[in-house]
Write a protein that binds this DNA or RNA. Structure first.
Length: 493
DNA sequence: GTAGGGTTAG
């Protein structure tokens, strides 16, 4: 089969690459591309396939061939090579190729920026973008899509999406739906639904923009709005993708609307989307949030292909049904069998399960194992879990030390953990520091004021309680529960 | 004649 036909077939199965195609591709490339001197075009096409099928060993063989033939300054080939390495997660190799390019164009820059962004290295992506701005090569809308999505990664100084939005407006990229989707996603993850709604209202939406909007509502606890939009999509016969189904199941779970969740399940079966692990994971999540753990497990059992995502979903199912100990048993069992490679998401679930089950020391040892046994650099979410573990144990010193020494800026979740534990263990000094940090980070939230007042009251510091009340009045903070978001109430525990 | 980078989901 000619290589172009193979690509067409692979594109048709964007999510699930057929094993048959994959084997055919690998042997085709080995025989016809690596055997004799391939053309530049063939090499690009072959690398494109390596990227799509995440065939890292073939990618490396082609890389060697490129160097051997001497095509290593061709920008088309280098961009494809960067992309292939990136899609296989070989960031070091991608960066070597990138740095070896003598004269860059916007595609080679964008390939690397995008690669960093897709591999959870948003900070580095932004640095590279700044480096690009200092050259004569100008970013285009594809570059902006990559760099904006890099900003959504974590709450920190990297969050300069608004500045990038301004660039986009000036350069006239605002009508590009890829750009619009990345901006909607960015603003929704910053809690800026006002901006999100304006962007959505002023674009000619396609199915990806609609999917992004549904997940924006989900991120901001507006499941009803997500369902409304989904119904509109059904009425207007908009193409439903696996992303749509995953997000809408998420909304059903958050709202615990089992009947509607079941209807979506029927739709999943009808559309034949039950091969997709994200959809299956979302179904399990929906059932377990609706309290139907048996059905969640049943969905898992029926899944023909069980990968890391689905195993993580199973652990999540038990963890969020209050069966943290069982969740950890499954996790330990999978680790022993060595057919499971836990990732960051999985460790977050496991650490949270430890926390909720009161298994503090076990959680701390998992965190260490994550680094030593699985070679994973902890991200902000796992640090937040560890800080919470120390804080709940009453080891406030270690929690604080970690917040100072970790490679991220401490966020509101961490300061809230610390503040709650200060209340629990009666630490006035640290509690004051944590609360004042939260006043800055979340200026409209009444929670830290009230917790700090509780800490002062428990310590008999009535003057200070009075001063907090005064401060609330001065800053216009309302005390009633009605105005609080669900997140704030949850954090108060 | 043929070739490169992009948004949304655990």
């Amino acid at each position: 089969m000619p290589i172009r036909c193979l690509i067409k077939r692979l594109k048709r199965h964007a999510t699930l690459v057929h094993v048959k195609d994959y084997r055919a591709l690998a042997s085709f490339v080995q025989e016809n591309v690596l055997g004799k001197k391939p053309s530049k075009y063939q090499l690009c096409t072959a690398l494109n396939c390596c990227a799509k099928t995440q065939n890292s060993s073939l990618g490396s063989q082609i890389h060697a061939k490129i160097v051997h033939i001497g095509f290593d300054q061709n920008l088309y080939i280098n961009s494809s090579l960067i992309n292939a390495h990136v899609k296989c997660g070989s960031m070091g190799d991608a960066m070597k190729v990138f740095r070896g390019i003598e004269l860059h164009d916007e595609v080679s820059w964008t390939s690397m920026i995008c690669g960093l962004s897709q591999n959870r290295q948003g900070g580095k992506a932004l640095c590279l973008f700044k480096e690009m701005l200092a050259t004569v090569v100008r970013p285009n809308c594809v570059t902006y899509v990559s760099v904006i999505s890099a900003c959504t990664e974590q709450e920190s100084v990297y969050r300069c999406g608004e500045l990038l939005h301004a660039h986009v407006i000036i350069l006239g990229h605002e009508s590009n739906n890829f750009v619009v989707s990345s901006l909607i996603d960015y603003y929704s993850k910053c809690g800026r639904m006002d901006k999100t709604v304006v962007l959505f209202g002023s674009c000619i939406s396609d199915y990806v923009v609609l999917n992004t909007m549904i997940s924006a509502y989900n991120h901001n606890q507006q499941g009803e709005e997500a369902l409304k939009l989904f119904r509109k999509m059904l009425d207007e016969n908009v193409n439903l993708s696996e992303h749509t189904l995953t997000s809408i199941l998420d909304a059903c779970g958050a709202l615990t609307v089992l009947q509607q969740g079941k209807q979506v399940h029927a739709l999943v079966t009808k559309l034949g989307s039950d091969y997709n692990t994200f959809v299956v994971g979302a179904l399990m999540d929906m059932y377990s949030k609706c309290g139907n753990i048996d059905e969640a497990c049943h969905v898992f059992d029926l899944a023909s292909y069980k990968n890391n995502i689905l195993w993580t979903s199973l652990i999540t199912t038990y963890a969020q049904s209050g069966r943290g100990v069982d969740a950890l048993k499954i996790f330990d069992h999978l680790l022993m069998e060595k057919r499971f490679y836990p990732d960051h998401v999985c460790f977050t679930i496991v650490l949270t399960a430890c926390n909720h089950s009161g298994l503090i020391d076990k959680g701390i040892s998992y965190f260490k194992k994550m680094i030593t046994d699985y070679n994973l650099a902890p991200e902000i979410d796992q640090y937040a879990c560890l800080i919470d573990l120390y804080a709940r144990k009453g080891d406030l010193k270690s929690a604080k030390k970690l917040m100072e020494e970790m490679p991220f800026y401490a966020n509101a979740v961490m300061w809230s953990s610390l503040l709650s534990s200060c209340k629990e263990y009666g630490n006035v000094e640290l509690g004051t520091e944590a609360a004042y940090k939260l006043f800055e980070l979340e200026p409209h939230s009444p929670a830290p004021y009230l917790v700090l007042a509780d800490i002062y009251a428990a310590a008999g510091l009535w003057n200070r309680v009075q001063s907090i009340r005064k401060l609330m009045d001065e800053n216009g903070i309302r005390k009633s529960l009605a105005g609080w978001s669900r997140v704030e109430v949850d954090r108060m525990r």
